[in-house]
Amino acid sequence: MTSFFSTFSIRFLLGTLLLSLAGCEWVEFSPNDHRAPAEESHLTRKNLARLEQQTLPPGDTLRFVFTGDSQRFYEQADDFVESVNQQPGISFVMVAGDISDFGLSREMRWVNEKLSKLRVPYLTVIGNHDQVANGRAAYQEIFGPLNYTFTYAGTRFIMTDTNGREYNFNGRIPDVPWVEQQLADTVGVQRQVVMSHVPPEDPDFDPTLRPAYTAALRNAPRLVFELNGHRHDFHIGQPFDDGVTYINSFAFEKRQYVVLTVWGQKQFRLKTIAF
């Protein structure tokens, strides 16, 4: 024992080995370890900073790509990126949650590895799958806040966590007062878009909050539509017959996405693209 560790060269080699391991991202303490290397964390903040640097589209028109549920569809993610990169006039990509399937940090980083090849920034909202296990902590580390807003080209995007079932329907998710407050703040805002993962008509949406949430949207005069994921297929309609349009995204597995063009106060055009 003593003779073994007193051999200087072996001690030196072991020491250097340990130092290398400490900085080696292969050393994983648990698949539920929420940490991510600096270049793969705080992506919402980084993508918003990128968006801010981007020249505003000319005139009044804003065009963006709308998709969701990238969970474990890595092959489709590659083809999605290739297709979106050929679309003209796109300002950014919106992903309506369920970035991961198992709520694991590595999955979120795998998806980012693909989506970071987009020519434009991409923005996400948290999905129910992103909250499984330690996923909520991983999402916050890798992407960022569960509720946030940004304004681009006169359009205010309000991104909110509606995965009520993951919180045992505790009556606080979605955070309706927060949503109301964001919708009320219309300074410099021509139109509004709300995006969340679970649509309010879904059984995974907290039923006690459904009336208040849909009322908040109904009472927002500048709201163009609400964008959702979760159901894996495209749908557009007014499920509450209250004049509020809800659009559900294709999941990556459907090999289709939506291009949304908004202008004026509430005008929009919708195009579906196969890839």
């Binding site: 080995l17 340990l18 391991l21 080696c24 292969w26 050393v27 994983e28 698949p31 474990r72 569809f73 890595y74 092959e75 993610a77 590659d78 590595r106 795998w110 693909k114």
Partner: peptide
């Protein structure tokens, strides 16, 4: 899927 590489799913322990 076909696009993740085997190296990406490995974890090192000591």
């Amino acid at each position: 899927n076909k696009t993740l590489s085997p190296a990406e799913i490995l974890t090192l322990g000591l």
